[in-house]
Simulated assay, not measured.
Amino acid sequence: MPADTVVEQAVRARMIASAPRMETVPATLRYARRDPFAVQMAFPASATLAGTAVCWTFSRELLEAGVRAPAGLGDVRIRPYGDDRTVLEFHAGEGVAMVHLSTPELRRFLGRAESLVPRGCEHLHLDLDQDVARLLRDAH
Protein backbone atom coordinates (compact mmCIF):
# COMPACT_ATOMS: atom_id res chain seq x y z
CA MET A 1 0.00 0.00 0.00
CA PRO A 2 1.25 3.54 -0.70
CA ALA A 3 2.67 5.49 2.24
CA ASP A 4 0.11 8.28 1.80
CA THR A 5 -2.96 6.12 2.43
CA VAL A 6 -5.57 8.15 4.28
CA VAL A 7 -8.81 7.55 6.16
CA GLU A 8 -11.29 10.42 5.97
CA GLN A 9 -14.77 10.54 7.42
CA ALA A 10 -17.31 13.33 7.20
CA VAL A 11 -19.10 13.94 10.49
CA ARG A 12 -21.84 16.24 11.70
CA ALA A 13 -20.56 18.23 14.65
CA ARG A 14 -23.01 19.96 16.96
CA MET A 15 -21.46 23.23 18.08
CA ILE A 16 -22.27 24.11 21.68
CA ALA A 17 -22.91 27.82 22.11
CA SER A 18 -24.18 29.95 24.95
CA ALA A 19 -27.56 30.00 23.21
CA PRO A 20 -29.97 27.21 24.13
CA ARG A 21 -29.76 25.56 20.72
CA MET A 22 -26.83 23.74 19.15
CA GLU A 23 -25.87 24.40 15.54
CA THR A 24 -24.92 21.42 13.41
CA VAL A 25 -21.88 21.99 11.19
CA PRO A 26 -19.96 19.75 8.82
CA ALA A 27 -16.50 18.58 9.82
CA THR A 28 -14.01 16.02 8.57
CA LEU A 29 -11.93 13.58 10.58
CA ARG A 30 -8.69 12.55 8.87
CA TYR A 31 -6.04 9.96 9.64
CA ALA A 32 -3.01 9.46 7.40
CA ARG A 33 -0.58 6.57 7.48
CA ARG A 34 2.33 8.97 6.89
CA ASP A 35 1.51 10.71 10.22
CA PRO A 36 0.47 7.63 12.21
CA PHE A 37 0.20 9.17 15.68
CA ALA A 38 -2.08 12.07 14.67
CA VAL A 39 -5.72 12.69 13.86
CA GLN A 40 -6.99 15.86 12.23
CA MET A 41 -10.41 17.43 12.55
CA ALA A 42 -11.16 20.08 9.95
CA PHE A 43 -13.95 22.64 10.02
CA PRO A 44 -14.89 24.59 6.89
CA ALA A 45 -14.83 28.40 6.86
CA SER A 46 -18.62 28.50 7.18
CA ALA A 47 -18.38 26.80 10.60
CA THR A 48 -15.98 29.28 12.21
CA LEU A 49 -16.44 32.75 13.66
CA ALA A 50 -13.45 34.10 11.72
CA GLY A 51 -14.79 32.76 8.42
CA THR A 52 -11.63 30.76 7.69
CA ALA A 53 -11.19 27.00 7.61
CA VAL A 54 -9.69 25.55 10.79
CA CYS A 55 -7.90 22.24 11.28
CA TRP A 56 -6.98 20.83 14.69
CA THR A 57 -4.37 18.09 15.00
CA PHE A 58 -4.20 15.86 18.06
CA SER A 59 -3.15 12.34 18.92
CA ARG A 60 -5.11 9.27 17.92
CA GLU A 61 -4.41 7.97 21.43
CA LEU A 62 -6.18 11.03 22.93
CA LEU A 63 -9.26 10.42 20.78
CA GLU A 64 -9.31 6.72 21.69
CA ALA A 65 -9.04 7.53 25.41
CA GLY A 66 -11.57 10.39 25.30
CA VAL A 67 -14.31 8.21 23.85
CA ARG A 68 -14.12 6.06 27.03
CA ALA A 69 -13.26 8.60 29.78
CA PRO A 70 -12.25 12.27 30.15
CA ALA A 71 -8.85 12.80 28.52
CA GLY A 72 -6.55 15.69 27.69
CA LEU A 73 -5.19 18.61 29.66
CA GLY A 74 -4.04 20.94 26.90
CA ASP A 75 -5.60 22.58 23.87
CA VAL A 76 -7.75 19.54 23.04
CA ARG A 77 -9.87 17.80 25.66
CA ILE A 78 -12.26 14.93 24.99
CA ARG A 79 -14.86 13.23 27.16
CA PRO A 80 -17.89 10.98 26.82
CA TYR A 81 -21.32 12.56 27.14
CA GLY A 82 -23.88 9.86 27.78
CA ASP A 83 -23.80 6.63 25.83
CA ASP A 84 -23.91 8.02 22.30
CA ARG A 85 -22.10 11.38 22.32
CA THR A 86 -18.53 12.53 22.80
CA VAL A 87 -17.57 16.14 23.55
CA LEU A 88 -14.43 17.62 22.01
CA GLU A 89 -13.17 20.91 23.43
CA PHE A 90 -10.74 23.01 21.40
CA HIS A 91 -8.98 25.67 23.50
CA ALA A 92 -7.37 28.66 21.76
CA GLY A 93 -6.45 32.22 22.64
CA GLU A 94 -9.78 33.40 21.23
CA GLY A 95 -11.80 31.08 23.45
CA VAL A 96 -13.10 27.55 23.60
CA ALA A 97 -15.05 25.71 20.92
CA MET A 98 -17.02 22.69 22.05
CA VAL A 99 -18.58 20.15 19.74
CA HIS A 100 -20.65 17.03 20.26
CA LEU A 101 -19.96 14.09 17.97
CA SER A 102 -21.66 10.76 17.63
CA THR A 103 -19.65 8.20 19.63
CA PRO A 104 -20.53 5.38 17.18
CA GLU A 105 -19.20 7.54 14.31
CA LEU A 106 -15.97 8.17 16.23
CA ARG A 107 -15.59 4.46 16.97
CA ARG A 108 -16.14 3.66 13.29
CA PHE A 109 -13.46 6.20 12.33
CA LEU A 110 -11.04 4.82 14.93
CA GLY A 111 -11.69 1.28 13.67
CA ARG A 112 -10.84 2.35 10.12
CA ALA A 113 -7.66 4.04 11.37
CA GLU A 114 -6.77 0.88 13.32
CA SER A 115 -7.19 -1.17 10.12
CA LEU A 116 -4.82 1.18 8.33
CA VAL A 117 -2.20 1.29 11.11
CA PRO A 118 -2.71 -1.06 14.05
CA ARG A 119 -2.13 0.43 17.49
CA GLY A 120 1.47 -0.17 18.54
CA CYS A 121 2.70 -0.32 14.93
CA GLU A 122 2.78 3.44 14.30
CA HIS A 123 6.59 3.53 14.43
CA LEU A 124 6.74 1.22 11.41
CA HIS A 125 5.16 3.94 9.27
CA LEU A 126 7.45 6.82 10.22
CA ASP A 127 9.95 8.01 7.63
CA LEU A 128 12.62 9.42 9.94
CA ASP A 129 15.14 9.98 7.15
CA GLN A 130 12.67 12.15 5.25
CA ASP A 131 11.70 14.04 8.43
CA VAL A 132 15.34 14.77 9.32
CA ALA A 133 16.06 15.89 5.75
CA ARG A 134 13.06 18.25 5.87
CA LEU A 135 14.20 19.69 9.22
CA LEU A 136 17.71 20.30 7.91
CA ARG A 137 16.39 21.86 4.70
CA ASP A 138 14.03 24.16 6.64
CA ALA A 139 16.81 25.23 9.03
CA HIS A 140 18.67 27.07 6.27
Rank of each mutant, 00 (worst) to 15 (best):
T86G: 03
G120M: 03
V132Y: 02
M1I: 06
R108N: 14
P26E: 01
R137E: 13
A19D: 08
R33N: 07
G66Y: 10
V132G: 03
P80R: 15
P20I: 07
E94I: 10
A71E: 01
T52S: 08
G120F: 05
A38H: 10
A69T: 02
A45G: 09
P44D: 14
V11T: 05
R14W: 03
T86I: 14
G72N: 00
A10H: 14
T5A: 15
T52W: 11
P80Y: 06
M41R: 04
P2R: 08
V76L: 06
H100T: 12
A19C: 04
S115N: 07
A17G: 15
G111L: 13
A10V: 05
S46R: 05
W56D: 11
R77L: 08
T52Y: 15
A92E: 13
A53P: 03
A47Q: 05
A27I: 00
V7Q: 00
A97E: 08
A42Y: 13
L128G: 07
R108F: 09
G120H: 03
A139L: 05
L88Y: 02
E8V: 05
L88P: 01
C121R: 13
L101E: 09
P2W: 03
R30W: 01
S46V: 08
P20R: 01
H140C: 00
A42T: 15
T24W: 08
R14M: 15
L63P: 01
A10P: 14
R34K: 11
E64I: 03
A53H: 03
D83A: 09
F109T: 00
D129N: 08
V132M: 14
F58M: 02
A97Q: 10
M15C: 05
G51F: 09
L49W: 04
S46H: 06
E8D: 15
Y81N: 09
T52M: 04
R68C: 07
A50W: 11
R85E: 11
E89C: 06
T24F: 02
T28L: 14
D75T: 01
S46P: 09
L126G: 02
L73R: 14
R137P: 00
G72K: 11
D4V: 06
R79H: 03
